[in-house]
Design a binder for these strands. Structure first.
Lengths: 343, 343
DNA sequence: TCAGACATTCAAAGCGCTTTGAAAAACGAT
DNA sequence: ATCGTTTTTCAAAGCGCTTTGAATGTCTGA
């Protein structure tokens, strides 16, 4: 069933039928009702390709799956972010399109998506400290939004981000206030912008308190459970092990906890742990009582907001760039405590 | 840059240019090379909407995000499954499209996707025991594949699934062989087909061994960490607590482990735990030595295979239905051991 | 009764591509 | 030189929709 057939059935022109269905004013109310009824009856659905061709809009937003090239992993926060975004899209009649590309040709795949007229806008996830994709997208004139920021971007752009620096500075300060000096940071990949900012926050607090940072207590990698576990194991073997650990993800924090438990150490008593909690739906940080003391910020909510901002941008391409900085909350659980006295 | 402009630049007709680029034989090799070069030079990318309109194919596969309506959660296995599928799609020049719909109108949203000509095929994820979507898709004539199966489907259809029944039967048998009688099953939502099959496997092994199943040891819900923890806590409070636990996901198994550790119980010595391991990239079941004894099957690999099967189906709509049953591997770690002697 | 204003409908062009059927060019064999 | 083949190119139609510009019908006030 297409427009032509439908209009023949109704004995009307395609123009009128099209207008009736799209709510244009220059059509008789009776006719509109009649058309609508016929459309429903015959299950007419406008072909979105044809519509897109005619209007120049596709009502599709493009995402490029952020696989870390090195390990071909899909970050679990991806799922929750997307779920948030999808919710907003659905409300605004957008669909979402995914492309998967080797890291090497990511920029090219954005270009392809947009130039081919597949999408009306693009969400850029997981920006790195140096992020050529941003200026590329900017030059192409695609509406886009970045989830996160890139320190080294030289053009203005829309972004939504958590105040990573501030939240990690606060978390570190919190540990320092509890008397900790040997504080480890189990961070995400250094090339990722968020990881850089978190480290800066950590550094700022440490420096501010006059504590020297021990490079042995700084580690960065893909934030898996295994990595958290391995790193914690390594650090606990040090002559002067950390008394507190800051983990960049609740996933790796789970790994840290496993390492501690293998050694019979109790979190909060023998060693303190703070995690960053993205409020992943399947891995919540406890119920009423948090499992980990954590810096908390819902990535799902960020997804919703990002989608809203992008749709705004599509509708108003010439507005000045908009940015949004979310503050993470510090929730205190039982995984932190005063530094234990040396026996 | 579009076909028309490009053909004008080249002084050729659109027909010839189109054919040259699409590898048709009836075009002079010299011309082809010249056209290709010009296309590269001007960065020509065929508009996929127009192409789709003309060919009737969109080169897009549709997925509907399986949010569990009750909790608005995004299953973490979703990310890995999709990553696997995306890989296959990329190799075959397909893109993937996502739609998010309230559970109530899922069927309608499939219909919309396909009827509007947005997608060439659909992947159905997370089928329930009773799954009206399958016959709906079947009637619509959409090429589709189901990840999992539905016990109550009355039409033949393509699917790929893990032998859930067999793997849980084996796992249960393994525990029985170790002397366990009080075996708990912390399962996924009962309405999900995979959960039903896992329970059947568990039941079969128990019945076969002449062990009566205690309903107190059967639980089912969304497989979160919190749920695993809560359920384990509850069960350990029973007068006659389980000596072994079967967890339907590594995520909830992590929750179980947390519950055990809170009580100072050691896995494998005081209580045995077996998990189902989907090989989630961020939550691997240990490195060389598995953390949990587990039934293992890569959901990412399932994603790759599902995509392949769907593409085959699209290319050969009239082939007889194809199905594929993957066997899960039982990997033995240190989370299982002989039943402890009553003191 | 008629011009002008307004409401309603329509035919046709255009979005950018593929594909059909025909034409032109090149070739080989007589 | 000529004719039948084969190779190569082209004009035009069509995919299903929107939208422009024109046409028709209705209504109003003079």
């Amino acid at each position: 069933m297409n427009l032509k057939k439908l209009s023949e059935i109704l004995g009307l022109s395609q123009t009128t039928v099209s207008r009736a269905l799209n709510g244009y004013p220059e059509v008789n109310e009776d006719t509109r009702i009649r058309v609508q009824a016929a459309a429903d009856k015959h299950g007419y659905r406008p072909n979105s390709r044809a519509k897109g061709l005619a209007t120049g809009r596709s009502m599709v937003i493009g995402h490029v799956i952020p696989t870390s090239s090195q390990h071909e992993m899909v970050n679990p926060i991806f799922g929750d972010f997307v779920a948030g975004a999808a919710r907003t899209y659905a409300q605004n009649n957008y669909d979402m399109m995914f492309t998967h590309t080797p890291d090497t040709s990511v920029e090219d795949s954005y270009r392809r998506l947009f130039n081919r007229g597949v999408v009306d806008g693009i969400v850029l996830q997981g920006p790195k400290v140096i992020e050529p994709r941003i200026s590329a997208l900017s030059q192409m004139g695609v509406p886009f939004i970045v989830h996160g920021r890139s320190t080294c971007a030289d053009v203005p752009y829309d972004w939504i981000d958590v105040n990573n620096q501030r939240s990690f500075e606060r978390a570190t300060q919190f540990l320092i206030d509890l008397g900790h000096r040997r504080i480890a940071l189990i961070n995400g990949l250094e090339e990722m912008d968020f990881a850089r900012r978190r480290r800066n926050g950590y550094m700022a607090a440490m420096t501010n308190a006059g504590i020297e940072v021990d490079p042995d207590l700084l580690r960065s990698a893909e934030m898996t459970e295994i990595y958290g576990h391995q790193t914690a194991c390594d650090m606990l073997k040090l002559d002067d092990p950390p008394t507190a650990i800051l983990a960049s993800s609740i996933i790796s924090a789970v790994g840290v906890r496993r390492a501690l438990e293998e050694r019979g150490l109790k979190m909060g008593r023998d060693i303190s742990v703070i995690a960053h909690d993205d409020e992943l739906s399947y891995m919540r940080n406890g119920m009423d009582v948090p499992i980990f003391t954590a810096t908390r910020s819902s990535v799902r909510h960020a997804g919703e907001l990002a989608a809203e901002m992008l749709i705004d941008r599509i509708n108003a391409p010439d507005d000045p760039p908009k940015t949004r900085l979310l503050e993470a909350e510090l929730v205190v659980g039982s995984s932190t405590g005063p530094v234990p006295q040396r026996s």
